[in-house]
Design a protein around this nucleic acid. Sequence first.
DNA 1: ATCTATTTGTACGTATGTATT
DNA 2: AAATACATACGTACAAATAGA
Lengths: 254, 254
Amino acid sequence: MDNTPPVTTRSDRRRSRPEAVAEELKSLMVRQGLRPGDRLPGEAELIEHFAMAKGTIREAMRILETQGLIRTRTGPGGGSFVAEVGRDRAKRLLGNYFYFHDLRVDDIYQLRCLLEPELAADLAGRLSPEVLEELRAITRRYDAPSTSPEEERDQHVASLEFHKVLAREAANPVLGFMLDFLATMLSDLTVWRALYAPANRDLWQSGRDSQLRLLAAMECGDGAEARRIMAEHMTRARHLMAAQEAALASDFLG
Amino acid sequence: MDNTPPVTTRSDRRRSRPEAVAEELKSLMVRQGLRPGDRLPGEAELIEHFAMAKGTIREAMRILETQGLIRTRTGPGGGSFVAEVGRDRAKRLLGNYFYFHDLRVDDIYQLRCLLEPELAADLAGRLSPEVLEELRAITRRYDAPSTSPEEERDQHVASLEFHKVLAREAANPVLGFMLDFLATMLSDLTVWRALYAPANRDLWQSGRDSQLRLLAAMECGDGAEARRIMAEHMTRARHLMAAQEAALASDFLG
DNA sequence: ATCTATTTGTACGTATGTATT
DNA sequence: AAATACATACGTACAAATAGA
């Protein structure tokens, strides 16, 4: 009954209508310079404005919500609001991309070898006492050698937590995100595959040692030394992990 | 009328139903080890299986489609199919994350300085003649100095194309993706902001020169030299760009 | 604490569009 | 060219959530 080309007169190519609505709303957000927390028009208004059915509008909102660009609440004063894309969501979405690109552990370590030392140098002398204590608390979680495979795995994951905290403190958001992503990736692999299997006690022993020396160097602001320690740590880890370099095909979906 | 808790008996926490359906389908895909191209159940079957309305199922599908995990076709033999998440989609999704994290050009260059040389070294001696020719063709697009701001911008974008091609050829998928992402980010900034404004003819002149020497080094398999040239090129670009280090707040939404 | 108003969320039936055979 | 099998869109009715009186 309603065959009028809606939404916009501009080239609609072959996008579905909800997709087009979502794009339209996005560019609206950009044009008006909306900030997180700002309100978007309500369902009713959008239905009227775009002259479309409720379901269509809802699908559009769902697209934006999936991308993490809006949050929506029910009730009076409710509606859709601009949101910052959360880091977790961004990591999951990016993880999906690599799902079919069978990553190798060494691919991840190649990057960590380059990036972790840079971060360590950046952070030297810039960590608050609270964060330093947080990091030390993490290292205490693997103070003693593990006595079971489960403990081994937990320690492996905990030591990745250490690096995630560093990533969180990065001054460079891109650097921080990427290292967080890589650590998360390894963490998932550790849990879902038996990546911690052959009991790399050497690695975790020397890893803990490196982390403590690293903390000392960062605390007294010695960036060059922090970089050196981290580089050495990463290189060693990379080589030890190269052992269990079974190509890992899958298991990333959040 | 139908108040039976559907979908699954497991903890549904506080997810909306479409979201829950989407998660369920995702884990189905993982459990069954579905590959790109494999068929998912049709709308009708899903409606029956989950005992939900059409619209609810559709919203779930829209979520998965937004994440790039499925494609759906109309017509007989149509339906929903598992898809590889496209690189473009992944880049856009990740770009959204940085939308409110006012990135600085220098943040991007800090990473490029570390990663581009590594890629150059990896690629030395491994590029096909076709790709080498493709790269040379790109450099020809900025053979002569620009004579207008528009041309200047086009040349800037073209030289980023050069790096995108390299990223595409990376053996390490994560490294390739990240560099592609960074170059795309800069490319968008170049177009949307006047990032090319103060006519950095020095940069593009010496940049073109570096790229040609880089191609020669990579062609004859000299990884160390390729790394050196790229590192030098990136460092120089970083310093020149530091000039227009106006914080760049926004404009990433695809 | 209960009600009420507001706004999103879910359901369902029908009609329309579209690509394959 | 027509039939078919599927997704896409519409419109209404009703359910759930939340803030405020």
